[in-house]
Design a protein around this nucleic acid. Sequence first.
DNA 1: TAATACATGTAATAAGTTACATGATTCT
DNA 2: AGAATCATGTAACTTATTACATGTATTA
Lengths: 194, 194
Amino acid sequence: MDVRTLCLGALMGGEATGYEIRKMFEDGTFSHFQIASLGSIYPALTKLTQDGLVTFVEHEQENRPDKKVYQLTQEGRRTFLRTLLQTRPAEDRYRSDILFMLTFAEEMPIELTEALIDEFAARHELMSHQIDPDNEDKQGSPSTYGRDENGNPKPGCCFVAGLGQAMCDATLKFIRENKQGLLDELRNFKARKP
Amino acid sequence: MDVRTLCLGALMGGEATGYEIRKMFEDGTFSHFQIASLGSIYPALTKLTQDGLVTFVEHEQENRPDKKVYQLTQEGRRTFLRTLLQTRPAEDRYRSDILFMLTFAEEMPIELTEALIDEFAARHELMSHQIDPDNEDKQGSPSTYGRDENGNPKPGCCFVAGLGQAMCDATLKFIRENKQGLLDELRNFKARKP
DNA sequence: TAATACATGTAATAAGTTACATGATTCT
DNA sequence: AGAATCATGTAACTTATTACATGTATTA
């Protein structure tokens, strides 16, 4: 799924600037299962504008670049919906340097192993927070996303959020239950053959 | 983590061909948290050979290209271990078209939603299988990986495999418990405003 | 004082994927 | 008969990342 489609999807929840769209992928609704950086979002929005799938209104600001608030056109909405129906979703891909490194735990100092596990846990704790739809630290954030016009949470979003939460919880639980065991094993392992 | 490092890691478990290394990322030990395609593995091995980090022995075969069995050099092993100690692991990144699409469940036919969920479940079921270290359909596979010279499973590998399994299980459990609920909600949702 | 948030945009670069090229054997 | 497995390798292409460019206001 290319960044253009991702942007269309992001705008399904209402108008937003490029900067705000990035936040959805960094912190917000989509953060745990899609990524898109500013360097790809801005060109994508330009392209979408040329193709008539989005329009923008320029809001002047003091001491800042003009803010461009993008919105789907009818054509854009239709296109996105069509894409949804026609696209065979690509394989999920998860890549984790930490897990790869932990595979070689025997070869590194135990402190490093522990640090890696702790970092893995910390990141998942953070993710768990970001997913939480009730978590509105983001006071007045652009997050109409995940909710419809009446402020009701959308079932699809809830389901996906719940799934993300479940994955995080499982990860954290596994670490709680197995970290010490691994570290002990590693100490034995190293004692036997130094 | 670039493909070269990934290849070095793959060879930490013993000798292997480029083709076999790909399998480790496709089906094997690393499949659930790293990816590497043949088009990137072969050039990486060539580069590593030039740099003296790996060597290969050519085994002639009938009716096939000669098989190149790669092996770490001492220098290669040292380099990998150093990388392990020095690398700040990059952020984990998970991307899932299916989850992205499911976010928009309200906008598509219920059958599609269900199909997407089922496919997501099926893929995780498969992954769960592939992770399972006891799963030796791969009779006599090159998988010395995850085990040391004596055939003992390596604690680090077990931990990572267990974690992957836990994530899969959590995902499957969540789907079992929430799929019907979502579909019902969607039916209500659509009944209210068609 | 340094970093972060806000705000957009471009361009060089890096990186990997897909497709092409070749070809026998085995499974379905 | 067709697909998949084994086996390597190259090259065109796509794609996104990183860095650059610019600048204020707020927070730590």
